[in-house]
Design a protein around this nucleic acid. Structure first.
Lengths: 225, 225
DNA sequence: GAGGACCCTGAGAGCCCGCTGAGAGACGCG
DNA sequence: CGCGTCTCTCAGCGGGCTCTCAGGGTCCTC
């Protein structure tokens, strides 16, 4: 579940980023309208959080441009309370919801969830590989009757691999999709997390659903090991 | 495309039956859990639509029994809205999606399609030469049923040659494509690796799929030796 | 048949890759 | 403020993969 946050105030952006990641979203940040448009053109987002007050192209402009380009991704607008712009205008321009600053993070989250529910009534079915299952919507997974307790990052990793069973996924792909598009850290992190996952989904069950393909990446066995 | 509908209410069953047939599915109806299990054991279904409220064994029971028997056919649960059971339990027990009654037929159809799409084996183009096969996406290969365990370099070499069956490939080409564009080492490495490959894909099977073309390079027999 | 070019193969050294444990830093919670 | 959790970094280790090298075999040419 990929979210784009367009916000130039560093602290707000960081807070939202952190919060949404903790909830299992993958987050991209754009600090101005140009960058936002660029990102949207190259990535698919489930929803966009858009500040109105931006350097350069403002939020109105961005929103209008998106809609004019036929992009229907739901947009949630953030407005300052002072009301230079009001929400009516925002909705006219093609936004789907709005929130006035200052806002609480829980409210933002609730609105995002509502938006996602509304615009994607198609709930995603449960992913399976043998007796290993993962429900993206309910954010739960397990092996057979046994529920598994995963951290957000582990969950994201497993979900990604479950969507490509029996396919080798490279570490680069994993870094870009599960971590960050522009991940710049030690790629070893993938190995570490694969290790964590194996210790939760395989070792206790005497299975080996995640195979290492040396020099290439990892492969999740469609039969669950 | 064969669908099993487990539903005891005559009118609903009939409506679903009619609708799905019109969409080109082959439909079987079971009015209770016992019959459902019997049918599943003797027929292969692409998907199962399962009502929870059934006389005798209820839907939960049926679903659990199926999974315990190792049957992974996708299951779509129908629940009454009143919520004696909730969908969370259903998903744990091995259902893949659920729908609350009353539901519209279009929605049911859409969900079924989504389920089928997801469970359909992703067809990756598998390269073949006789009984020798190689799946680039899954990064697996074998001869007949026998899986072959190749190192990355061996795999790359075999893949390259399988893409040019019955064609002579020069060592220079191999060095440039399988090794490095500007490879600067002992070209003898190709001979060494062809040797490794032959010992894995040919010798144990008494075949000779890779022919040496003296002074030119190698050719992989399209019939696998 | 002799000579030479070409190819095969076994042995072994080095190194790269992936795995793991330990621990630091950020954050949330009581 | 102390504790627990989660994420990520780092360094060490172990094994297997890659590659080199040299000796011997094979095929072609003259």
């Amino acid at each position: 579940m990929r979210v784009l946050v367009v916000e130039d105030e560093q602290n707000i952006a960081a807070a939202v980023d952190r919060g949404l990641r903790a909830e299992g979203f993958t987050v991209d940040i754009a600090e101005d309208g140009e960058k936002a448009l660029g990102l949207v053109r190259h990535n698919g987002y489930a929803v966009i959080v858009l500040d109105l007050m931006l350097p350069g192209r403002n939020g109105y402009d961005v929103c209008r441009t998106l809609r004019a380009a036929g992009i229907t991704t739901p947009v949630l607008i953030l407005t300052a309370k002072d009301g230079e712009y009001d929400e009516a205008d925002a909705l006219d321009l093609g936004a789907d919801d709005y929130l006035t600053k200052p806002f609480s993070f829980v409210v933002l989250l609730a609105r995002l969830r509502a938006l996602l529910r509304r615009t994607a009534p198609q709930r995603s079915p449960v992913l399976r590989a043998g007796d290993l299952w993962l429900d993206p919507a309910a954010h739960r997974c397990g092996r057979g009757d046994q529920r598994l307790d995963l951290t957000p990052r582990e969950f994201g990793l497993l979900e990604f691999m479950l969507r490509r069973p029996d396919t080798v996924v490279s570490k680069t792909d994993l870094l870009a999709e599960v971590w960050d598009t522009w991940f710049e850290g030690d790629p070893n992190i993938v190995e570490v997390y694969v290790g964590y996952l194996r210790r939760k989904i395989d070792t206790p069950f005497g299975r080996s659903s995640i195979e290492t393909v040396r020099g290439i990446g990892y492969r999740l066995d469609a039969k669950g090991g």
